[in-house]
Design a binder for these strands. Structure first.
Lengths: 238, 238
DNA sequence: GCAAAAGTGTTCTGTCTACACCCATGA
DNA sequence: TCATGGGTGTAGACAGAACACTTTTGC
């Protein structure tokens, strides 16, 4: 990891990403537990190199934690109240215990400032992601959005607003497919929609609506071994 | 104006506002011509005090230029490609001519950095605004959005994306009334919509749709002196 | 009375919803 | 043959578009 200084990174500005995955009929969010021996949970985030565009920086942060390169990623809002500070991290740095920071003095100076954060959200196929740690992470895990722990600063609010943005855009921009594997059944697609909107849809009408969009390609049937009609598999038509 | 330094303001971060007004059936945008003797046009912008939230800072910038306090103001996107620099301003500063900058050296250092800008857009009743200059403005004027000059950096693109956001939100959030005076006729409201979307609407259907929203209060008739039926005046029901 | 603009009503159409029915599958 | 879940059809409700008609105003 590079040093925290204004030659390397833009000061007082960070990027935090709400990375959505979908598993077991539940939306999940990738959460980092920080490597400080205290229960500090944060969104995957990072800083912006002086020679990087913000989209580029967000993409790099994502790649560091997920290993993925081609993913849906979109800026949704910038957060910057006057008192937005990293107090929990500062508290830890103040305690003179060893931390994973290479230059403690520079780190204290860096994190003692008030920060503005550009919020991004990403949609990934959870099966393709092996969460990867950086130097500052104790662990990085998928947690169900319904039962997130208390996150640092305003990160819980950032998740909430990212979810609202996702709901607004899921239909409009047909981005839901980014959360599913390559092929899926109509039921799986519907369950994803129900997880995002947290409400049920009528099965027959949902099917009609999805098919009328003409973005799905119907593949062969999927024989599950269950005692019922085998559903078709579908693929998103690029 | 305060000095340009990181104690006072957050470095490398600015706010630029697309302030929409409506006049003569055309959308207008408030544009500043900078006080440098060169034709440098910009959006009204400014920096973020260390002790100000970003919404607060945007509101203050708006108040400086328009004199208004209670206005519709919303963040819409943050712009930050790697090469986003204030080259035209730097060129002027390089020429050793007198400029309105209090501390030329500090200004050069400040503006030579790459900047990230948080974009806000605002809707105001154009009749209530007396555009006000700051130290750096030669003039501040309402220009029709259809015929803007070439603006500094990516400000033309910022206007375009603000307009797209306005179009998405005009109906959804019923914010159009912020562009009109207290009372207005149905025709005036329709002409506003037509200016924003740059397309015509059917008169009768438009009326029905607006009335069905149940946000308009019908007042007395407005006798214009013209040889036709007098239209009703309406007011937005808060 | 006439032209111009405002206000309202009617029909048609496409979309969304609710209900109903049939089909394939494995036990 | 039966239960289970998948796929499709149809009728009613509703909103938007297109067309037509009436009313008000000043000349």
């Amino acid at each position: 990891m590079n040093q925290f200084n204004p030659e390397q990174y833009i000061p007082q500005l960070s990027i935090d990403s709400v990375i959505f995955g979908y598993r077991k009929k539940q939306l999940h969010v990738l959460i980092s537990k920080m490597n400080f021996g205290h229960n500090i949970y944060t969104l995957p985030g990072g800083f912006i190199s002086q020679d990087q565009g913000i989209d580029e920086a967000a993409l790099q942060i994502l790649k560091e934690r997920t290993g993925l390169k081609d993913i849906f990623l979109e800026q949704y809002k910038t957060f910057g109240p006057a008192d937005r500070k990293n107090n929990p991290i500062l508290d830890v740095l103040d305690q003179d215990k060893p931390t994973p920071m290479p230059d403690e003095q520079a780190a204290v100076e860096w994190f003692s400032k008030r920060f503005i954060s550009i919020g991004y959200y990403a949609l990934v196929d959870i099966n393709k992601v092996k969460p990867q740690k950086t130097d500052l992470d104790e662990s990085v895990d998928w947690l169900p959005i319904e039962s997130l722990p208390s996150l640092i600063m305003d990160h819980n609010q950032m998740v909430q607003e990212a979810l609202e943005t996702l709901r607004r855009n899921l239909d409009e921009k047909l981005i839901g497919f980014n959360l599913l594997p390559e092929t899926f059944t109509m039921r799986e697609l519907q369950e994803l929609y129900e997880a995002v909107y947290d409400k049920a849809f009528a099965r027959n009408n949902f099917q009609k609506k999805m098919l009328s969009l003409e973005v799905l390609e119907r593949l062969e049937k999927k024989f599950t071994g269950a005692a019922n009609k085998a559903p078709y598999l579908y693929r998103f038509r690029r």
